[in-house]
Design a protein around this nucleic acid. Sequence first.
DNA 1: TTCGCTGCAAAATGTTTGCATAGCC
DNA 2: GGCTATGCAAACATTTTGCAGCGAA
Lengths: 145, 145
Amino acid sequence: MHTYEEIVQKMASQGLRITDQRKTLAKLFAESPGYLAPKAVYEYMGKSYTGLSFDTVYRNLRVMEELGVLEQVVFEEGVKFKLHCREHDHHHHMICLQCGRTYPITYCPMEQTLVPDDFKVVKHKFEVFGYCKDCAQDEPALGEG
Amino acid sequence: MHTYEEIVQKMASQGLRITDQRKTLAKLFAESPGYLAPKAVYEYMGKSYTGLSFDTVYRNLRVMEELGVLEQVVFEEGVKFKLHCREHDHHHHMICLQCGRTYPITYCPMEQTLVPDDFKVVKHKFEVFGYCKDCAQDEPALGEG
DNA sequence: TTCGCTGCAAAATGTTTGCATAGCC
DNA sequence: GGCTATGCAAACATTTTGCAGCGAA
């Protein structure tokens, strides 16, 4: 688990300056269990900074992604960010459609998948979407496709 | 397998008018084995139509998607379209990174995935990316990730 | 003091919409 | 001929870039 301090330290060790904004970003992602859209990050940050600009948020998200602090995932609704998985073992995720929280799945379907010899596998994606314990209560019978 | 005729017929049966452009679209997707980006479709269409506009291509792609003729998938590089899978059985895909061609995977990882009782699964995504037989030859040692 | 970070503005990109006209049925 | 589809232009959303000034180290 990345703590606030670890994130700040990682940024500092790479020569980045630790501004108030980046502190807030570090804190936000350290405390957020799931994926955050850039807009959500911007709105959260906006509470603390009046003159905040969207582009700086973008810039910092990208910088943090390049540092390996954050990871970016493309959803149907757009791009989102979360703390980079600390687990080094290959794994997948269950993702809550409500809160964006993720849970690891250790099982990898590639073990069972029959791939023809003439298909050269480069990567794969396995994601399970649904509602986590907390959110399932709020969304009693949400049908979705 | 959707043929050109089936696509045209489906559009006509829904009250859509069969214009030259839509005929060309139907033919393009009937003959294309894999995913096509809107831009690729536009460029292909542009060969035949001088005054072609991007928005009409978009509109028609969306109309065809709403009809169930096409399906839309979000990739990292953006949105792409292909013929809607005719197979009714639940399945997944191997997708060639070069030509976009897809191959069905009948195995579904959800069978093996341990999901906690308190997580309400809504949907899942399983995709294998790589190079198909034809493209693997052209891309001898493409490291990616 | 230095050099990176920020906000502003504008550009680049991808997608959608309104409207008059052309064209399918 | 009626009504839909098209092209044009412009709106819109998202992301990137240039630049002058502020601020962390």
